[in-house]
Write a protein that binds this DNA or RNA. Sequence first.
DNA 1: CCATAAGTTGAGGAGGCCCTCGACTTCGTA
DNA 2: TACGAAGTCGAGGGCCTCCTCAACTTATGG
Lengths: 218, 218
Amino acid sequence: MDDMTATRPLRADAARNRDKLLAAASDLFAERGLDVPMEEIARRAEVSIGTLYNHFPTRGALQDEIIPRRLAEMDAIIDAALAVDDPWQGFVDFVVATIALKAQDHCINEAFGRRFELSETVRAACDRAFAPTDRIIQRAKDSGQLRGDFARTDVIMIGMALTQLLNQTMDLAPQLWRRCLALYLDGLRAEAAHPIDVPPLAIERLEEVLSERAAKRG
Amino acid sequence: MDDMTATRPLRADAARNRDKLLAAASDLFAERGLDVPMEEIARRAEVSIGTLYNHFPTRGALQDEIIPRRLAEMDAIIDAALAVDDPWQGFVDFVVATIALKAQDHCINEAFGRRFELSETVRAACDRAFAPTDRIIQRAKDSGQLRGDFARTDVIMIGMALTQLLNQTMDLAPQLWRRCLALYLDGLRAEAAHPIDVPPLAIERLEEVLSERAAKRG
DNA sequence: CCATAAGTTGAGGAGGCCCTCGACTTCGTA
DNA sequence: TACGAAGTCGAGGGCCTCCTCAACTTATGG
């Protein structure tokens, strides 16, 4: 209503088209990933390609609108995890729910994995969604249930690993990632821990490491 | 010499070009993956694009020549693993060496992950390389060290998971996968095992599951 | 009901990659 | 050395996707 950017309201038909475009893009991103051709989005929205570009001048503009909305679901996941009495169970719930969210559609999965090649907006949304992770980890470590050498970036590492599994299996074996994760979680318990001689990835190197590969692909 | 297909020997300059092309493709596949543009291969070989197609009519022909040669290294890995006295250590060595092989270059990593979208030759080479895996797993299970509910396809699942991590980190954090794998392996010990309610992927479904995603991408 | 600002349209240029093919060059033998 | 077979070359046609823009259509307020 009192939008600061004070652009006059859209004409009725334009607003309708905008909604149709967002819905179409949202569906297609979920089904086929973030690189789905723009033409297909326009077609599914029953609108011409020109209209698509009129409303969203770049693919990024579309992503910026859609991804943060979905990512907001992380808030509930984190709250729920912190509300669980048993810190280990809270940690497990958090990891499982996070991956389950990614397993729901390709869009969220890719958004996490490629956040450094996408827009600043997407990247910020991912950061915000994950900021409270530390507390969950720390709580589980303090209780002596999560292994002491587990680091913040290890959660990200696990997420990356599961991403590929999801990509390849979420359509035809939609539960398989749960098995993979269950095996993994058994290795994260304090009593299962054996010393590891490779240090965790420093959080400061995260962006550097994750964007290089992106650069190579583009 | 007495090649059954009895094509007369290549002219000297043609043989030289063929070698240059194989070397260039091998390097570029390793550096940038199996989808590197054909033009770049020709350029690196200092040969025209026409000559490339003259020697290798498709990208697949090039892959068929290069990938199986690399995959042959798996034989030594498996022999070494079976030669280790401690069955658990043999299993660990096998998994680590396999991933290490994939970590050496993008080509091998992708070849494993995409064997069902590549040629029959590549696919057969992968199958052959992995056939003896069962013995390593069985030996470790029989000794009571590897958890009893571990399945053949779980090795493949772990490989898939690590693939993505490798893709994103092998260039700038080339040791990180070892940490991820170490955490994982701790969950595979018999004494770490907690019941899992998702069954392993049936080996018969492997191809179906892995090729669907490929179909969607193409 | 009309004028006009707002919005829509789709053909087509740009760029990337694939692969072909007819003209040209080089090898290797006699 | 000379000739035919073998091999090389690279411009260009095909396909795909991105994105633009000038001509057209429609909503809306007076």
